[in-house]
Structures are given as structure tokens and as C-alpha cells.
Design a binder for these strands. Structure first.
Length: 545
RNA sequence: GUCCCCGUAGCUCAAUGGAUAGAGCACGUGCCUUCUAAGCAUGCGAUACAGGUUCGAUUCCUGUCGGGGACACCA
């Protein structure tokens, strides 16, 4: 964790200096890699420029003064560069010590013991069990599952949940749709038209003949929910709990929540319905109030949703994150208002809205509609392109991007997918270790003694050492932006440094034992970080390709 | 009409307000008698438009144009 300790050192040195000078340092330590043309340093700090503005002093002079303070075990030298950067070069020995720490216990690399104590619940996918999961669910699953993995790696407490809408009117609608298929009559106009129901009807048990629509609906939902579970399993996305809406009704949580809101004076009646004043809540962005109980006496979807979120808080979670598709973005303001109505603090609820996927077959756009049954299922793509390619592809994008997904491309030229570029690093390192054992450079079971800083000084090697040092910081960025995509980018960059190293620096060489072993150590570090990083994205790291 | 997201290379996508905007694919040219060529080297090529904020803007603000999505006593 070389950068974490470096940051601590710099911060304390700088604040002591600032105190002496009577200056106020900017918040946060914005340490970043130097641009490619700055070869003499590894890191840069733009502090002096912000400081120059507030203190009305020459930034370059401030940078020089600041650089003079930076004496630390990790730092070889620190110097000012115009217009006011402080550029820092790391000590080779410190980089090698970091490498050793990585290989000693790869699973602990990136743990952030000083971070905030959080107890987070992330709800994602939560697709209705009225049809197979479609490809878009893969995006939510990638986001949620990878985030959970990174948060846990950092040391946060994080749980994953899938909310199942198995109550309400759609059970019967689904039942009517499949019943019609069974009887060979037309499917109701607003019903579910998908062929999957026809298939399911064919396989219904004999006693199904006498079933009511509700019984049919429950039967179909159970089967569909099971396929959702299997699909998520195949996608390597894991949930700590599949939370059924029906549980809320069974336990009386829906009524209790309504009473709770009533007692808090948050609801009113109008036109025979019960409303939540979401638009008038403080700082509310909702444009109108929302119905909780219809004039028919039936609750809307919104009331059990609130009950579910209350339930999450009641179970001790302090931060709730919902991952939603862009078609649900209107849901966010009203749920925020509901959280406020429950009396929970601002910031205890956060929504990640990811944009939709545009599907293409070649150049032709594919229109998708679940009701009409015309859609591309997650399973279909999974079977064609595989879990690794699919997850990495999704993990590379920010949730905000409207991504285009070309089925032709995904199914035929999978080499387009950069996941192989990363995985290939892992396979190559594995091959190197096999060769090393064969040539006796590293004897069977012999532990590596430790990287020798004297040997790992080629630009290609140093660049890798520095890049490896960034891994823990990248995980923190993932936490900050609530998206795994910086990790995907990082792994590609690391891979992009390894391959040139592989071409230029021969690793296994019996004539140069010490150099070989030092390079093997570097390879081990790359292998470990690639493997750990890919695993956080739910992608495998093969030994052979 | 109101609200949300996006507009970066021929294509798919990156870039906590920092220095000369990065990758991959496609295309051109080289590189497999040595640890896997799913690789390397090299060339080509981009911030929609107009203002503003600032030492500095792809990033923040306003407007225009273009694309996607949402605006139920559906979920």
C-alpha cells in the first residue's frame, strides 16, 4: 500500500508546512499519475496551483517550497514543475517492497482499514418474474455484483438483494396469459405474449386443467423465478437474499408502514385514495404527489416498495443503494421523498441509474418489448459469448453511457472484446512460470526470495511497478463513483504495460539467475493483481488460452 | 410541454477542473529458430455548435442542434 502511506506522509508534511506559513491547504490529496511526457517522475500533485489562487502567491514558488518538504521513505525526489505541479519520483526499493506485499497476500491487497465504516445494502436486477431475464439485466447485475465485490474487498460491509414482485395484479395477468396458451385461446391484449409461456403451458402438469388464473400465475412465477436464479448463477452474480414482496404482505409490513407514515403525519386522503406528499417534501424533486392506496382499497406498488426500504433500514443497513434502469429514473425522486418521510437522513439512500442498451444485429437496430415477447435474453447472449466477455464488456462502461451492443459482433468476432487482452496476460505469466520450472531457474516449490530493486530498473519494469501501486487507489475510486468501470480500464492499462515488457524483457534465463528471479517476482505481482482485479469483476483468469 | 442521460478518431468506449485528450476494433507498414502472435513496434485519425466561469474546461454554468429514456389510482 505504498500510495496510502505516501499520502499520509505527504499530508502531514504539507499541513505542518502550511501551518508554519499561515496557509490553508485545499481539501483532499489529488495525487495523480504524471502525463506520459514527464519521464522523470511518477506522481504529480497540483496543490500549489489551487493554493496560489487563494493565497495570491506565485504557484511555482509555492510548489518549490512544498517539494522541499516532501522527504519520506517512499520518495526518491520531489521537484516543482511549471506552472505549479509538484512531481514526485518514487524510490525503487519502496516499489519493490510494495510488490512483495502484493505477492505475499494478494487477497489483502487493496484492503482499506482506515476507510469509513459502512453497512450498505445494494438492491439490483429485481426483474419481475413475468418473463426471462433480458440482456439489460446483465448490466445491472454486472454493476451491482462487481460493486459488492469491490466494497467487500475494501473492507466495507455490503449485502446484495434481489427484490421479487410476486404480489399484486401481474400474478393474475401472467396467469391469464399462460392459461390462454394452455387452452389455445387468444392471449389477453395487455397480457404477456411471449412464446416462453406457450412452452411452459405445454409442460404444465395434468392437474393444471382446473387451475384458476391465480394458480396458473403462481405456477409460472415460480418457474420464472427459478430461471432468474439460474441465470444469475451462470452470470456469477450472487445475492445474499431474494426478497419476496409477498413476504411483506404476509408479515403485515405493508399495513404497518402505512400506519407508520400516517402516525408521522406524512399522508393525506383525497378522492378516496391515500397519498404521500412527495412533491412537497423538503428539497423534493418530485413533480406530483403519489398514491399509496388506491380508492379501491388496493395498495399501489409504491407502498410495498416503501415498506421494503423501511425493512432494509430496520435490519440495520445505514446506506441503501438501488440500481435501476433509465426507464425507472422517475422513480428516484419519489423514493427519495419516501425515505425522508420515513425519517431517514438524506444520503442514506442512493440510486444508480444506468442507461439502456441499444441492441443491434449488424447495422440493424433490434426493438425489444417484453410484453410482446420480442427480446434478447441474457441467457441467449451468455450461451453465445460467455460470461467473461459479457461481464467485462459491461464493466468497462460507465452507467451513464448509452451503450450499443451488436449481437453479430458479440457472437462472431469475440476477439473484439478486450477481456482477452487482460486474460492473456495471466495465461502468459502462467506459461513463464511453467518454463521457469522446466529450465530450473525456479526450483519446484521454491519460494521467491524477494524482488531485488537493483534489477527491476528498465522503464518497462518500473512502469509496471508504479501501475501495480495504483490498484488500491483504483478500488477507492470505484467506491467513490459507484461503478466498477475504472477497474476495467485499469486492468487494460496494466495489461498494456505487461505485453511490451514481455516482448522486450526476457524473463527465464538460466545464465542470469538473479535477474530472472527478480523478473519472475514482477510477473507474479502482475499475475496476482490481474487475477484479483478480474475476479472483482466476476471474470476468470485462465492459465492457458 | 416538463424532467433525466448522452454527443470525443471511420466504429465501440475512457479521461477526481490539470501538463502534449487515452485504449480496443478497422485500415497501412514491419516483427514468430528463444517464456503462447488472443502479442509487439510504427503510421492514420477526435472533444456537436455558440457563449460564460478560471491561472487552466472533454469535465462546471447558459443557450442551440442532434440521439435515447421517463412523465398512471401500471410495476
Amino acid at each position: 500500500m505504498i500510495l496510502a502511506s505516501l499520502k499520509k506522509n505527504i499530508a502531514s508534511k504539507a499541513s505542518a508546512w502550511a501551518k508554519k506559513e499561515g496557509l490553508i491547504l485545499p481539501d483532499g490529496l489529488a495525487l495523480s499519475p504524471t502525463p506520459p511526457h514527464v519521464k522523470s517522475a511518477d506522481l504529480s500533485l497540483p496543490w500549489a496551483m489551487t493554493l496560489g489562487k487563494t493565497a495570491r502567491k506565485n504557484p511555482l514558488e509555492l510548489a518549490k517550497a512544498l517539494a522541499g518538504q516532501f522527504v519520506a521513505p517512499e520518495i526518491e525526489k520531489a521537484e516543482a514543475a511549471p506552472p505549479g505541479f509538484v512531481n514526485i519520483r518514487l524510490r525503487d526499493s519502496a516499489l519493490c517492497a510494495n510488490l512483495k506485499a502484493i505477492t505475499l497476500n494478494p487477497a489483502l491487497y487493496g484492503v482499506d482499514p482506515d476507510g469509513p465504516k459502512r453497512k450498505i445494502l445494494i438492491e439490483f436486477v429485481s426483474a419481475n418474474p413475468t418473463g426471462p431475464l433480458h440482456l439489460a439485466s446483465g448490466r445491472g447485475a454486472t454493476l451491482g455484483d462487481s460493486l459488492i465485490r469491490v466494497l467487500r474487498r475494501l473492507g466495507r460491509e455490503a449485502s446484495a438483494e434481489y427484490y421479487v414482485n410476486d404480489a399484486g395484479g401481474r400474478v393474475e395477468l401472467l396467469g391469464e396469459s399462460i392459461k390462454a396458451r394452455f387452452a389455445g385461446t387468444p392471449v389477453p391484449e395487455k397480457g404477456y405474449q411471449g412464446e416462453y409461456l406457450a412452452e411452459m403451458a405445454k409442460q404444465a402438469p395434468a392437474e393444471a386443467k382446473g387451475w384458476t388464473a391465480k394458480q396458473w400465475g403462481e405456477h409460472a412465477m415460480k418457474i420464472l423465478l427459478d430461471t432468474h436464479k439460474r441465470d444469475m448463477e451462470a452470470f456469477d452474480a450472487h445475492f445474499d437474499r431474494w426478497f419476496l414482496e409477498s413476504e411483506l404482505y404476509a408479515g403485515g409490513a405493508v399495513e404497518k408502514t402505512l400506519k407508520y407514515l400516517k402516525d408521522r403525519g406524512m399522508v393525506y386522503e383525497k378522492d378516496g385514495a391515500v397519498w404521500l406528499g412527495t412533491s412537497s417534501a423538503q428539497d423534493s424533486e418530485d413533480d406530483k404527489d403519489r398514491v399509496l392506496v388506491k380508492s379501491s382499497g388496493q395498495p399501489t406498488y409504491f407502498l410495498p416498495d416503501i415498506a421494503y426500504h423501511k425493512n432494509k433500514f430496520d435490519r440495520g443497513f445505514t446506506e441503501l443503494i438501488d440500481i435501476l434502469g433509465a426507464d425507472h429514473h422517475g422513480y428516484v425522486p419519489r423514493m427519495k421523498a419516501a425515505i425522508t418521510a420515513l425519517g431517514m437522513p438524506e444520503g442514506s439512500f442512493h440510486a444508480i441509474v444506468h442507461q439502456l442498451i441499444h441492441l443491434y444485429r449488424g447495422k440493424e437496430a433490434v426493438k425489444m418489448s417484453k410484453r410482446a415477447g420480442d427480446f434478447v435474453s441474457l441467457r441467449e447472449v451468455l450461451d453465445e459469448v460467455g460470461k467473461d466477455a459479457c461481464r467485462f464488456f459491461f464493466a468497462m462502461r460507465t452507467p451513464d453511457s448509452h451503450l450499443n451492443f451488436d449481437l453479430e459482433l458479440a457472437k462472431s468476432k469475440t476477439s473484439e472484446n478486450p477481456v482477452y487482452y487482460c486474460q492473456y496476460v495471466h495465461a502468459r505469466v502462467s506459461a513463464i512460470f511453467r518454463e521457469a520450472a522446466k529450465q530450473g531457474v525456479l526450483k519446484e516449490g521454491e519460494p521467491l526470495p524477494g524482488p531485488n530493486a537493483k534489477f527491476l530498473t528498465a522503464p518497462e519494469e518500473r512502469a509496471i511497478l508504479v501501475k501495480l501501486a495504483w490498484f488500491p487507489e483504483v478500488l477507492k475510486t470505484v467506491e467513490a463513483v459507484l461503478s466498477p468501470h475504472p477497474l476495467g480500464g485499469y486492468l487494460l492499462e496494466l495489461a498494456g504495460l505487461f505485453h511490451p515488457f514481455y516482448e522486450k524483457c526476457r524473463v527465464v534465463d538460466p545464465e542470469n539467475g538473479e535477474l530472472s528471479r527478480a523478473r519472475l517476482f514482477l510477473c507474479a505481482g502482475v499475475r496476482d493483481v490481474i487475477r484479483e482485479g478480474l475476479s472483482l469483476l466476476g471474470v476468470s483468469a485462465p492459465d492457458q488460452m
